[in-house]
Design a protein around this nucleic acid. Structure first.
Length: 418
DNA sequence: CGTCCACAGGAATGACGGGCGG
DNA sequence: CCGCCCGTCATTCCTGTGGACG
C-alpha cells in the first residue's frame, strides 16, 4: 500500500507540475507548426508545382532531397494540407496519400497502404503484388480524382527492394482513364539518382527541390518559435536554447535533433524540479538520448546479433585493438556452442555485422592486409558497461558476458600490421 | 611484378509461417 | 482443403580484390 502512495505521489506530481512545460506536444517532430521559418522558398516552390491540381490537372512529379531534419516532411505535409483545404473550396477532386517507405518496408505493403487510403481493404499478405496493384488501379480509376502519392524516405525502399515500385507508379497514368496520379518522392540520400533506372528518373525528376541543412542561427530561430509555445514564460534560458541549436547544427543541421534535445532537456529539468532550463540540462539530455538509443537498439536485436556483439565484447577485452571477421566468427561459434544455439554461417554473420554497422553499434571497415588477405576491421562503438547492463537482464546472455573463452585466435599474423 | 591470402559481398535457392481465392 | 504467392531468414556457391610478400 506504500507502493500506491509512492505512485500516487509521482502521478500527482506529474499532473500538477506545470512549472516547466506549457504544451510539450509542440516539441515532437511530427507536430506541424503554423509557420515554418527559413523554408519559405521551398514552400513556394512546392506550392507552385502542385497548384495545377486546383484546376483538376495533374501536376509534375517532384523529387525532394535533403538530409534528415531539414524539414522535408514538414514542408510537404504543410503544403499538401493547405492544398487539400483549398481544393475543397474549389471543388477540385484531390486525394493525398502519405507513405513512409522505410516504416512500410516492402513493395507489397506500399501498394496495400495505397489501397487502404482509397478505402479498399487488402489482406496483409497472400496476394501477388500484381494483384494488389491491379486492385489499386481499378479502385483509383473509379474514384475519378487526382491522387497525390507522397513517398517519404523512398531511398530506403529503393536500396532494399529496387525501383520497381517507382517504375510502376510513374507509368500508371498511361493506364488510368479517369483518374490521375502525381508523385512526390522524398529522399534523405542525395545520391539516390545513381540507383534509379533512367526511365524512372526522367519521369520523376520533372521537378526537384533541395533542402539545405539549417545553420545554428536558423535552428535557434526554429527552436525559439516552438519554445514559446512549449515552455512557460521565462523557464528556458537563452544559453540552453543556443546550445541546442549549436549541437544540432554541428551534426548536419538536424532540426529534429534540436527539438529532441530541447524536449528532453525540459524533461530532465522537470524531474529535478529546476526552475530554469540551463546548459547543464541540455548536456544531460544529449547523454540521455544517446543512452536510450543504444539501449533500445541493443534490446531489440535478434539473438544472433546479440551474440555477435558479445563476441566483439570479449575480443575487445583487455587490449582495445579491433577485431577482424575471422576472429569474430571463431568467438561467435564458441559462444553458440556454449549456449546450445546452432551457429549461422560466416556469410550470414558478415551481413549481421554490416547491419550492426548501419545501426551504429559497431564500426566495420574493409581493409586489406596484403599477403594476409582482405577482411573487415571491426570495433565496438558503445561502452562495455552498457552492454553488461543490458545483457544482464537475460540470464543466458548474462552468463555469456561473464564466461571465459578458450578461443585463441589463429590470425596472429594480423599483428604484423603496424 | 605476379602471387595469393582471407575474406567481401552478389546471386540463386530453399525452408517457413501467413494468408489469400476458389 | 488445395495450390499459390508473399516476405523473411538463412545457406550454398560463387567471383572479385587490395596490397604485402617473395
Amino acid at each position: 500500500m506504500n507502493d500506491y502512495n509512492i505512485l500516487d505521489e509521482v502521478f500527482e506530481k506529474f499532473v500538477t507540475n506545470t512549472q516547466i512545460f506549457n504544451d510539450r506536444e509542440v516539441l515532437r517532430h511530427d507536430y506541424i507548426p503554423d509557420k515554418l521559418p527559413h523554408r519559405e522558398e521551398q514552400i513556394k516552390s512546392l506550392g507552385e508545382t502542385v497548384a495545377p491540381i486546383l484546376k483538376g490537372a495533374r501536376c509534375s512529379n517532384v523529387f525532394i532531397y535533403g538530409k534528415t531534419g531539414t524539414g522535408k516532411t514538414a514542408v510537404t505535409k504543410y503544403v499538401l494540407n493547405h492544398l487539400e483545404i483549398k481544393a475543397k473550396g474549389f471543388g477540385a477532386p484531390v486525394k493525398v496519400c502519405y507513405v513512409n517507405c522505410r516504416l512500410t518496408g516492402t513493395e507489397y505493403r506500399v501498394f496495400s497502404r495505397l489501397c487502404h487510403s482509397l478505402g479498399m481493404s487488402v489482406p496483409f499478405t497472400g496476394l501477388s503484388i500484381g494483384e494488389v496493384f491491379d486492385r489499386f488501379k481499378k479502385g483509383l480509376d473509379s474514384l475519378k480524382v487526382v491522387f497525390i502519392i507522397v513517398l517519404d524516405e523512398v531511398d530506403a525502399l529503393i536500396k532494399s527492394h529496387g525501383d520497381s515500385v517507382l517504375y510502376e507508379l510513374t507509368r500508371i497514368n498511361e493506364i488510368l482513364s479517369s483518374s490521375k496520379v502525381s508523385l512526390v518522392g522524398i529522399s534523405n540520400d542525395l545520391r539516390l539518382k545513381e540507383f534509379l533506372d533512367p526511365r524512372v528518373l526522367s519521369s520523376l525528376g520533372e521537378e526537384e527541390i533541395v533542402f539545405r541543412p539549417y545553420d545554428a542561427g536558423e535552428l535557434r530561430n526554429i527552436l525559439f518559435d516552438r519554445a514559446k509555445l512549449a515552455f512557460r514564460d521565462g523557464v528556458l534560458s537563452n544559453g540552453a536554447l543556443s546550445l541546442c541549436g549549436a549541437l544540432a547544427a554541428a551534426e548536419h543541421g538536424d532540426a529534429r535533433r534540436a527539438l529532441d534535445l530541447l524536449r528532453v532537456a525540459g524533461e530532465v529539468g522537470e524531474r529535478k524540479n529546476a526552475r530554469v532550463i540551463v546548459e547543464r540540462h541540455v548536456r544531460e539530455a544529449e547523454k540521455r538520448i544517446e543512452h536510450n538509443r543504444i539501449v533500445e537498439a541493443l534490446t531489440n536485436l535478434t539473438l544472433h546479433s546479440k551474440l555477435v556483439i558479445l563476441s566483439l565484447f570479449h575480443l575487445s577485452g583487455a587490449n582495445v585493438r579491433r577485431a577482424i571477421t575471422g576472429e569474430i566468427f571463431d568467438v561467435y561459434s564458441e559462444l553458440c556452442e556454449k549456449s546450445g544455439v546452432s551457429p549461422l554461417t560466416q556469410r550470414r554473420v558478415s551481413t549481421l555485422v554490416n547491419e550492426l554497422d548501419a545501426i551504429g553499434l559497431l564500426n566495420a571497415q574493409v581493409i586489406s592486409m596484403g599477403r594476409y588477405g582482405r577482411t573487415k576491421k571491426i570495433r565496438l562503438e558503445i561502452g562495455r558497461t552498457l552492454i553488461r547492463e543490458v545483457f544482464a537482464g537475460d540470464d543466458r546472455l548474462g552468463r555469456m558476458v561473464k564466461c571465459q573463452l578458450k578461443c585463441i585466435s589463429q590470425h596472429a599474423h594480423c599483428g604484423h600490421r603496424k
